[in-house]
Amino acid sequence: MPKTLIVFGSTTGNTENAADTIAKHLEKNEYAVDIRDASDVSADGLADGYELVLFGCSTWGDDEIELQDDFIALYDDLEKASLKDKPVAVFGCGDSSYTYFCGAVDAIEEKSEQLGAKVIVESLKIDGDPDDDEIIKWCDQIISKN
């Protein structure tokens, strides 16, 4: 039963809904899941005690990549999260009409890798409202890698 942490930042509720779908599917597959809103966590030792860490963040901004407001402080202090050698996967919602579609997902994945995390699957970039089937397929990839 892999102990899993899901941390999400959501403004409209789409990324939170995706996080909930992920948590339910992983729990159904015998994962122990803690799900936290980014506004309620500190980066200090965040990943300690977890075998898998999933980050979810929506993206704003057309001219530049803007992370969801609640996720910014966590992103800025991510080096304190103890991600070295941790399996990590990233998901998020965005709008494909923007120049940097789900750019926050790319930024979090890149920073996690720079900090020594092992990104285990390709990130999940959701265009608009979350599609449960798409999310579950992504979760199944995680389960097969973990």
Rank of each mutant, 00 (worst) to 15 (best):
K24N: 13
Y31E: 09
I135E: 06
D132M: 02
N17D: 14
K137L: 13
N29H: 15
M1W: 00
I65M: 04
D63G: 14
L124E: 04
I136R: 08
H25S: 11
T12E: 09
V7K: 04
Y75M: 01
A43P: 07
T11K: 04
C57H: 01
A23H: 01
G49A: 03
V41H: 07
I35T: 14
L124Q: 05
D133L: 05
K111T: 07
K3E: 04
A23P: 03
G116D: 14
S82V: 00
E27Y: 01
G116L: 14
L26K: 13
D34E: 15
L54F: 07
G13S: 09
D127V: 11
D44V: 12
V90A: 03
L26T: 12
V88L: 09
L67G: 01
Y50R: 10
W138P: 03
L83N: 10
V88W: 11
A43I: 07
E30D: 15
L46D: 11
G103M: 06
K137R: 13
Y98E: 08
A47S: 13
K86M: 10
V41T: 09
G49Y: 05
I108V: 15
L52M: 12
K137T: 11
I35N: 04
A19E: 10
V105L: 03
S123R: 08
A19M: 10
I35F: 02
D34M: 05
V90K: 06
I65K: 07
G128A: 11
F71A: 09
Y75N: 07
I135T: 12
S82Q: 06
L115T: 06
M1C: 00
V88E: 11
F71R: 00
K3L: 02
S97Y: 13
F91V: 09
T59I: 04
V41I: 13
W60H: 15
L78N: 01
A81C: 02
P87K: 14
C102Y: 05
K80F: 05
D106Y: 06
Y100L: 05
S123H: 11
T15E: 11
A104G: 15
N29Q: 13
A38H: 12
Y31F: 15
I108Q: 01
